[in-house]
């Protein structure tokens, strides 16, 4: 699955798509493959404050619980309730229908974010180390 050119990525395998002051956040295809079948998603409430680099939600696969870290700081303006109903969307469409939260961005974005080319290289290195 290609990594969209307009996304930026964290080393912890979250993505963020910024559009003006709004940003959508999710986890990457590589992340969902590592997790396996996803069965439960816990998201913050609308209005919650996200701090870049801090955990804001959890994703549970059959065998593991993983925390999800915010790629940007800001206020949650929407959550994907369809994803809460159907967590398996994270396996089938991680970069699209399985977006997790929408954030009104405050302050500067995390400067450790990678573009798609850099993230692909990063993932290839992770895979080689396994």
């Amino acid at each position: 699955m290609p990594y969209p050119a307009n996304f930026r990525f964290t080393p912890e395998h979250e993505w963020v798509a910024v559009d003006g002051t709004q940003a959508k956040v999710g986890i990457t295809d590589y992340a969902q493959k590592q997790l396996g079948d996803i069965v439960f998603v816990e998201l913050p409430a609308v209005g919650a404050e996200l701090v870049a680099g801090q955990a804001f939600g959890t994703v549970e696969s059959v065998k593991a619980v993983s925390e999800i870290f915010a790629p940007v700081s800001g206020t949650v303006s929407a959550i994907n309730s369809a994803l809460v109903q159907s967590p398996e969307l994270l396996n089938s469409d991680p970069h699209g229908a399985a977006w997790m939260v929408e954030v009104k961005v405050a302050g500067k974005a995390n400067d450790k974010l990678m573009d798609a080319a850099a993230y692909e290289k990063f993932v290839a290195e992770e895979e080689a180390s396994h």
Binding site: E12, H13, E14, I27, A31, Q34, L35, T58, V59, K63, A64, V65, S66, E67, I68, F69
Partner: peptide, 9 residues
């Protein structure tokens, strides 16, 4: 993403 707990029994 980070594994908070791995419960692989």
């Amino acid at each position: 993403m980070s594994d908070a707990t791995i419960s692989m029994s």
